[in-house]
Design a protein around this nucleic acid. Structure first.
Length: 616
DNA sequence: ATAGGGTTAG
């Protein structure tokens, strides 16, 4: 155009500047700015605003400011262009100051500042600005609500979120997909999965984001089964998943032990390698295999990663620790350091828990000190928890108490709980009583501690104390968190509770359970009912333990898989003594390997023995 | 005819 001698006018330049922003190359914007001066168009408001915007977008805030200052009449539009530059440059105080100077703030300027704060994680300030906006009588629009809902989702501001929902309905925007997706995410993150699901089911044409927020909502509230159910629906509707989808589905598979589905995802990612480049996917896959008990597959994925991240080292090391393979966990840890990676707090949780599972007291102490002194990592509650657990299990109660007293934070229930567990193992009733008091003050409604203390009184023969605690528990209406075990058969996850009769094949499951009991008795198994906490007759207690959720899951596994197939079960609590002994025997009676994951770690049952060596 | 603002995971 210039070579042909055709004069550009004030309409030309805004288009040209828009392109400058897109190609972003070096001094092109400045050159075009020169042409503007040459043609004397610098006073046109449209041209001038696009100059400010161009510099702001390039991150050249000084030039943007200079252009802005030259302006005769400043309107909301020019302010907003500059504010945007300050926001993306992280200069919030300057942005906020400029914003307050705008004489005639309109929706777009409010949106710029609100979304700026929201995107930078300053959600409370974003919501505060939204409040101000409403007070000043400026009507929000779709963009405002998208930013506001995102902020509500992050800080759990359900009240503002509810307001947003009624606003959306009043404006007749109920069918706006972006707004509905943002609402679903907000309700899910605020914990109201019912409303989130209702909105989700109401969408006719769901897009990928609708599916992702719904699945992610379930995963992040630990509703893993629901997450997988929605993923299945998504597949039935032929919606192509992306990395975000898998980053929500894989943890659900890992938690439920849904290994087959996880493997399917692994194959899918391999097949579409070009579109799945997010390194977090590999970390999730390692974690999946480790948590499903297939440590060999976890290692294989780990060894095939092109660029290893700290996260993948961490999950691999914690996987080995969970399996009780302290030696290999520590070896991998050395390798990681040799390769120049710096361990973080998460790495040390794995290292310390590996030492604790294996009873490596000296090494645990050593790494704890090295973490603090060499790596300058301030220990958190979880690190102290591992150390207390390690020292307590070894019976080193004085040292454990000294460590607790040295902490510069208040010990939590987990710490007192693991110390109480150690007291029970070593029959230290005296310390146990005072530890239990501390625990009850912190977590008066958690029945676990009461059960432990009552068990200790029972071991000591103090039956009146046992009765007193039981009555107290009953009076307080406390119930143990129900034990729940899941098993995956043919890619479907089946969940069982104690004495569960809801499974469609319930009749066959209980037939097999009778058979199991008969063979166990024949093998000399005497039911251990010491952990049953109801005041009922011994015979009934035996009935209860034989119908524990893990026994039902194993029974279902035995009748629904081919002989010799390894059974993988996942329990939400710690395995009880009776089930542990029974499972050991079942592995030899039925010639099945059984890999059980409990709350803390793995048990590999094979030929009548368990990898934890009955120490867990 | 031309200028300023936008959702999902980690």
């Amino acid at each position: 155009m210039l070579w042909n001698g055709i004069q550009p006018n004030s309409y030309t330049f805004p288009f040209v500047f828009k392109c400058c922003g897109k190609i972003g190359g070096g001094g092109i914007g400045r050159q075009v700015h020169g042409h503007v001066m040459k043609f004397g168009l610098q006073d046109d408001v449209f041209v001038h605003t696009s100059i400010i915007h161009m510099y702001a977008k390039k991150g050249d805030l000084d030039s943007a400011r200079l252009a802005f200052d030259k302006r005769g009449s400043r309107d909301a539009v020019s302010f907003t262009a500059l504010i945007n530059g300050y926001v993306s440059g992280g200069r919030f105080d300057d942005a906020r100051k400029l914003f307050d100077e705008i004489p005639d703030k309109d929706v777009v300027s409010w949106n710029a500042i609100i979304s700026g704060f929201s995107q930078m994680g300053r959600f409370d300030e974003a919501l505060g600005l939204f409040e101000e906006m409403r007070e000043e009588g400026v009507s929000p629009d779709v963009s405002t609500l998208l930013s506001v809902l995102s902020a509500c989702a992050h800080v759990g501001a359900l009240d503002v979120g509810n307001w947003a929902r009624s606003w959306i309905e009043e404006c007749g925007l109920g069918s706006n997909l972006r707004l509905t997706n943002a609402l679903i995410d907000m309700y899910a993150k605020c914990g109201d999965l019912i409303t989130a699901r209702m909105l989700f089911d109401g969408i006719d044409e769901k897009d990928l984001i609708s599916w992702n927020v719904m699945i992610g909502g379930y995963t992040h509230t630990s509703k893993f089964k629901e997450a997988l159910d929605v993923f299945r629906l998504m597949q039935m509707e032929n919606v192509k998943p992306n990395d975000v989808t898998f980053l929500s589905v894989l943890p659900a598979c890992a938690h439920l032990g849904a290994l087959a589905l996880g493997k399917w995802i692994h194959v899918y990612i391999d097949k579409h390698r070009d579109s799945f480049t997010n390194p977090a996917l590999w970390t999730s896959l390692i974690s999946l295999y480790a948590k499903c008990g297939n440590i060999a597959a976890a290692k294989q994925v780990f060894n095939e990663i092109d660029s290893v991240t700290l996260g993948s080292w961490n999950v691999m090391i914690s996987g080995l620790a969970m399996h009780g393979d302290a030696k290999e966990a520590l070896a991998l840890f050395s390798e990681m350091i040799d390769k120049g990676f710096t361990p973080d707090g998460i790495t040390f949780i794995s290292i310390l828990s590996a030492c604790s599972h294996a009873g490596l007291v000296d090494l645990g102490r050593q790494w704890f000190n090295s973490m603090v002194q060499e790596y300058n990592i301030a220990p958190k509650l979880q690190h102290y928890g591992c150390m207390i657990d390690l020292l307590g299990r070894a019976g080193l109660f004085d040292e454990a108490m000294a460590l607790i007293e040295s902490m510069d934070m208040e010990p939590d229930g987990a710490i007192w709980g693991s110390l109480l567990g150690a007291c029970r193992i070593h029959g230290n009733l005296e310390l146990g009583k005072s530890v239990a008091d501390k625990l009850f003050k912190l977590e008066p409604n958690n029945p676990g501690g009461y059960v432990l203390l009552s068990n200790m009184y029972a071991q000591d023969g103090q039956w009146d104390e046992v009765a007193r605690i039981r009555t107290m528990l009953n009076d307080m209406g406390m119930k143990k968190l129900p034990g729940c075990t899941s098993i995956e058969v043919d890619s479907v996850v089946h969940e069982f509770l104690v004495s569960d009769k809801t499974h469609p094949q319930s009749e066959d499951i209980y037939k097999m359970l009778d058979e199991m009991s008969r063979l166990l008795e024949k093998a000399g198994h005497v039911p251990d009912t010491s952990e049953v906490f109801y005041d009922i007759e011994e015979k009934w207690k035996e009935g209860v333990v034989s119908q524990h959720s893990e026994m039902l899951a194993i029974s279902y596994g035995l009748i629904s898989t081919k002989p010799g197939t390894t059974l993988r079960i996942v329990k939400n609590l710690r395995v009880c003594n009776n089930c542990h002994t029974a499972t050991r025997l079942i592995s030899s009676i039925f010639k099945r390997e059984i890999i059980a994951r409990d709350r803390n770690r793995f048990h590999h049952f094979k030929d009548g023995s368990c990898s934890c060596m009955d120490y867990w």
